[in-house]
Amino acid sequence: MLEKLLKWDRDTFIYFNGLGAKEFDFFWSIITNITTWIPLFLLFIVLLILKFPKKEAFFKLMTVFGLVFFIITVTHFTKTWVGRLRPNNTEEINTLIRVLKSPTDYSFFSGHAASSFSITVLVFLFLRKKVKWMVLFFIWPLLFAISRIYVGVHYPLDIIIGALVGIFSGILFYKVYNRFILPYSGSIHPSREE
């Protein structure tokens, strides 16, 4: 079963990576770069500061930063424990694929997918009642995750599991915030945040 799943993962990766075209390489190389998204991170911060009282905004921002630290740590330990080579470092397929980036660490699961989905989910849950167009922010993790296949550094399962870890982590941190932090933020009663 695991063998069939890994074969599907490899074959699906080769297929989607092979759809890439040289004229789009620059675009996807920019999309996959974390620094490209700094303006979006700043927008998240500004929205939280503008939409909530100072103390509450501070606690929400600290929760987001705590989530980022958590995701980075979990991703690092999972990659080291699983030890799955990235496609660009796998000899049996790296001559068959398009490789635009060459990281040397491990593949499973995608830190890009986990971090982008977790941050977006948490910020969405914080702001969904105050900013009507918050759902548009999910364009970021979708593009960010897809870019990792395009540039040749992650298999589809890396992306899917990374996204699921991110989504569940964002929800978890939202619940932790409501249960343990919100009552001490001094602004609203916990039941009104739900």
Score class of each variant (00 low, 15 high):
97 I>A: 00
109 F>D: 01
18 G>H: 11
189 H>F: 06
59 F>V: 14
176 V>Q: 10
96 L>H: 11
38 I>A: 09
188 I>A: 04
13 F>M: 06
13 F>P: 01
122 L>I: 00
93 I>N: 03
105 D>K: 05
35 T>Y: 12
146 I>K: 00
109 F>G: 01
69 F>Q: 07
19 L>G: 00
73 T>S: 15
17 N>P: 01
59 F>G: 02
115 S>N: 14
101 K>D: 14
28 W>D: 03
96 L>I: 14
182 L>R: 00
86 R>Q: 06
25 D>M: 03
56 E>S: 04
73 T>Q: 10
31 I>C: 01
128 R>E: 14
43 L>T: 12
140 W>E: 01
185 S>W: 12
150 Y>R: 02
137 F>A: 04
132 K>P: 02
111 G>L: 05
47 L>T: 11
101 K>F: 11
36 T>W: 10
147 S>P: 10
45 I>F: 12
136 L>A: 14
116 S>P: 04
26 F>Y: 11
152 G>I: 01
48 L>S: 04
108 F>A: 03
62 M>L: 15
105 D>L: 05
82 V>Q: 09
161 I>W: 09
88 N>Q: 05
62 M>I: 15
68 V>K: 01
86 R>F: 12
66 G>N: 04
43 L>H: 11
154 H>C: 04
13 F>R: 01
149 I>S: 02
101 K>E: 14
132 K>I: 07
77 F>D: 13
57 A>L: 11
138 F>H: 04
39 P>A: 08
143 L>I: 06
139 I>A: 11
135 V>A: 12
24 F>Y: 15
14 I>C: 08
48 L>D: 05
192 R>Q: 12
89 N>Q: 15
125 L>T: 08
112 H>R: 02
44 F>I: 09
